[in-house]
Simulated assay, not measured.
Amino acid sequence: MTLPSASDPATRDVIAAFEAARSRLFGRLDGLTDAEYLWEPVADSLSIRAGDDGIFRVAELIPEPVPGVPDPVTTIAWRIWHIGSLCLRGYVTHFFEDVPDLGDRHEWPGTAKEGVQALAKDWEHFTTRIAALGDKRLLAPMGVGPGTWADETYLKLTLHALREVAHHGGEIGLLRDLYLRQDS
């Protein structure tokens, strides 16, 4: 992936932080197999699954928390979908104008290779849009978006996206480590 360029200092630093996160995450995804991608470490893991039409879709978006019940365990495929489609693609869709049709956010590739490629594409759409803002627009209220987000800055959105990437990227790394050592 080519790093989007930004000349304004805050925008440049945000893009550099995303590049560092991308490099770490995609390094951890290198060589991901289909078996790892879809591995369900516990019964009832959330994942993506093929429907009757053969198209893979996310089984459940974000389940409602139930008091006293831990959140469900998710697969690597679900986490890659969550970062790419739900977060990065969703942010482009909801917070930028003149967005091209990016497809059904619930559909996701059923293979590791295609899933990582889809994540890279969503990553590029998001970081290219952020890089094009420049510092003045990055620090101004967005003016678009659901709920109270229209009053927030693109910087806040970008930092939120970075937290999501770091959080779920770390979980992907742990799931890979557990998968590789499950017979140890």
Rank of each mutant, 00 (worst) to 15 (best):
T111Q: 13
E97A: 13
P65L: 06
A140P: 01
P109A: 14
T75C: 06
P41I: 01
P63C: 03
H125S: 14
E114L: 14
E107R: 15
W39N: 09
D104Y: 12
H82P: 06
G90C: 07
S45H: 09
P70V: 03
R137D: 08
F96D: 01
T93S: 15
A112K: 05
I62P: 02
V116Y: 04
P100C: 04
G134R: 08
D52N: 14
P65H: 06
F26V: 00
W39Y: 03
T127M: 04
T127A: 11
G103Q: 07
F95K: 03
E124P: 13
R79T: 07
D30G: 13
A132T: 14
E107Y: 05
P65R: 06
V66R: 11
P63N: 00
G31F: 01
A77C: 03
I83W: 05
A50S: 05
E124R: 15
L29A: 06
V69T: 13
D34P: 06
I76M: 10
E114C: 06
L38D: 06
V42G: 07
R57P: 07
K113F: 03
F126T: 14
L32P: 01
L32N: 10
G115C: 15
E64N: 08
V42C: 00
A35C: 04
R79C: 09
A43N: 04
W123S: 02
H125L: 10
R49S: 13
W39A: 12
E40K: 14
D44N: 04
F96G: 00
W81G: 03
D53W: 13
I76L: 12
S47D: 00
P65E: 11
R89L: 05
D135G: 14
V92G: 10
A132Q: 11
Y37E: 00
K136E: 15
P109E: 08
P100G: 02
A50Y: 07
I48N: 10
P41L: 13
S45F: 04
L86Q: 11
L138S: 01
L29T: 00
H94A: 07
I76Y: 05
D30N: 01
V116P: 12
A118G: 11
T33Q: 13
D53F: 12
G31A: 11
G90R: 01
A35L: 04
Q117Y: 00
V69N: 09
A131Y: 13
D101R: 12
L102Q: 03
G134C: 03
V99M: 06
L46V: 02
F95M: 01
D52G: 15
I80G: 10
A120T: 07
R79N: 15
P100N: 04
F26N: 03
G31D: 08
Q117G: 00
P63F: 02
T128K: 10
T111R: 11
S45D: 02
G68D: 10
F56C: 15
G54F: 13
P41A: 06
D30T: 14
S47Y: 00
W123Q: 14
L102H: 08
D104P: 02
F126C: 15
R57K: 11
T127Q: 08
A59R: 04
D104S: 03
R49K: 05
E64P: 11
L133F: 10
S85G: 08
P109C: 07
A120K: 12
S23F: 06
L88P: 09
V73N: 11
A35I: 03
E107F: 08
D53L: 12
P70K: 04
T93F: 05
H94F: 05
F56T: 15
D71N: 14
P67M: 09
A120R: 15
H125Q: 11
A118E: 15
D53Q: 13
D53I: 02
Q117R: 12
